[in-house]
Design a binder for these strands. Structure first.
Lengths: 182, 182
DNA sequence: GGAAGATTGTTGTTGACGACAACAATTGCT
DNA sequence: AGCAATTGTTGTCGTCAACAACAATCTTCC
């Protein structure tokens, strides 16, 4: 543990470059290296063909948004997945591990470790279900409830960072577009 | 190798559930398990508080979109990152590994393995730079160029899947919102 | 011109994460 | 009662981001 925080300023802001209209027709087969003028322009590359790919933009955005989340909640040492688990349990106490895993789209094998760490920190507790002795009923501890309240405040701050980054109405439109995946 | 393809139908389509308007006010501290009616409604949980979080929606969407990309390009055994590397090199022949890594936001350590695999498949080649004997000038091989053309056709098909999933104009608006990250 | 520092490619480690397989305990079905 | 399915758990494998260390090479500065 104690490795999470890496807030290290990896949030480089060199993004948002201008999309130059010149398409260089790169198909040139010349195997000879393009003389010496390649060395210094490596800050204006222009990846052209990648611009129209949703997956690439989403991946880059996802990396940024997770880094900001981790950094914003570094003081409480909570990662996005842990937060989502606690949120679901907090909103639906008594759920089984299977139910939480299915709801969040994570595997139950993975949830085991997540719950182990959260249980060690006295944030959630597994209570043996009386109706089904295979399963555990998941609850937040009293400490977990007050902690989650603070996590939510920090998460709201993170959400404000997102709004600053892409614009308030763009963020809402994004949530609307992706609501099918929530 | 030969493990990539796992197109295995893991693309579960149980997403896009209806958001029931009933919020159950879950704060109830009753540690007693909610009798037996928890067992069967585990398909309508309602995670409520997670709905307003951009990061969660983006993560779920990113998982879906990558799985579709991998499945759509499974026949040529190309993953999203490999595709992005080849695209950048194809559009800017002669770049150094550092330049490609910085442009794509991946670490140069990671790029080493990516290029190893692509070079073993005779898709790209590292040519020792004459002007800076530390660096390599990256080029597509002739085989790599024709292969990339096919990859782009398959990627376009994948992009159509995205449009089918979230709507054509929603996809374009998404690309526009996230253009700062491209 | 030569020492000190930075850069480039490389190797290796760590940790989070998704996918999968196997297993014991328990439940459900018939 | 007997057999299939479910639940939590453990373990393995592969991907990926983040670091650290290193040799070779460039750059800078005295």
């Amino acid at each position: 543990m104690a490795r999470n925080s890496q807030a290290g300023g990896t949030a480089r802001s060199r993004i948002a470059r201008s999309r130059a209209g010149t398409r260089p027709r790169p198909g040139r087969t010349r195997s000879g290296n393009g003389s010496a003028h390649n060395d210094l322009l490596n800050d204006e590359i222009g990846l052209d063909a990648l611009a129209g790919h949703a997956g690439y933009a989403v991946r880059r955005f996802q990396i940024w948004i997770f880094q900001d989340f981790i950094r914003t909640l570094a003081a409480v040492d909570i990662r996005p997945t842990q937060y989502s688990v606690m949120t679901v349990i907090g909103a639906n106490p008594g759920l089984s591990q299977m139910a939480v895993a299915k709801r969040l789209g994570i595997e139950r094998a993975r949830l085991v470790h997540l719950l182990d760490s959260l249980e060690h920190r006295d944030l959630v507790s597994r209570i043996k279900s009386a109706t089904d002795r295979r399963s555990h009923a998941l609850h937040l501890t009293a400490q977990g409830r007050t902690a989650l309240a603070q996590f939510k405040r920090l998460a709201a701050e993170h959400e404000r960072h997102v709004a600053e980054k892409i614009g308030k109405e763009n963020r809402e439109r994004l949530l609307q577009i992706l609501s099918a995946f929530t």
